[in-house]
Design a protein around this nucleic acid. Sequence first.
DNA 1: CTTTACTCCGTTGTGTACTACAGGGTTTAT
DNA 2: ATAAACCCTGTAGTACACAACGGAGTAAAG
Lengths: 136, 136
Amino acid sequence: MKEEYTIGKLAKESGVTVETVRFYEQKGLINQPSPKSGYRKYPYDDVIKIRFVKRAKELGFTLNEAKELLQLRVKSDAKCGQVKLKAEQKLEDVDKKIKDLNKIKRSLKSLIQTCSNNESSTSECPILESFEKDKK
Amino acid sequence: MKEEYTIGKLAKESGVTVETVRFYEQKGLINQPSPKSGYRKYPYDDVIKIRFVKRAKELGFTLNEAKELLQLRVKSDAKCGQVKLKAEQKLEDVDKKIKDLNKIKRSLKSLIQTCSNNESSTSECPILESFEKDKK
DNA sequence: CTTTACTCCGTTGTGTACTACAGGGTTTAT
DNA sequence: ATAAACCCTGTAGTACACAACGGAGTAAAG
């Protein structure tokens, strides 16, 4: 866990490509370290940031949303109220996602169960109704 | 809840545009009802399918993955073993997503808490470490 | 001190998921 | 029965998130 990373090492360490790092830099997900000696040096923090972004994307957040999530830390000085508000909104999103994923999970479990008791009478998987129960 | 939908009504009812419906049709997410009388008619089932796809996407599944999830129902005749396997894989995915979302959730909650006790000493939000704890 | 590996910047290409016409035909309402 | 609203097929364009490449400079290893 050194403190200085070249772009290549950063990329490898965080599980993305060099191009992705540069892309994220452009988009402001990590801040550009001005190339002091020709090459840029990145702190270890950026490894963690990029890993976070990677996973956030897999969870259905866009790059911009991931950026917002990242920005929630640090800025808690003057605009604590704003940060709190944003955090609360994100929390709602996250909660809804968890709920819906649990619905899908239950459906999948039930499907696996039905498949195991191989009575298989054109067993309808309830996955389609995942988001229909308790609706309206 | 009628049984026959024109593409426009289907789109409206499922919260997407007409173009999106056609796009999903092309991609095989819903099956093309041959335009018997010049216009196509869709069953109510397609409303539910499209709503499902929509939400699945927000949960980080691709269109193809959503398609796979949809295909898990129905086909449980001969290849029950295959379906079960696929369902089990999806279940793992879903479980991992839920776990990670819970980590983010805890981070957000803690951030909100810190913000509420307005001691705000450059309070570092732990969201960045969401996926770093218990790693390696 | 030269070779090899890595980096720089900029431009272009790729895959996914739509979105917007264009130029028609069909249905429905008045 | 005709105008408005809706549908058809097909093609082209857009936004996001990278990936690949070209041509040149820099760093590190032997």
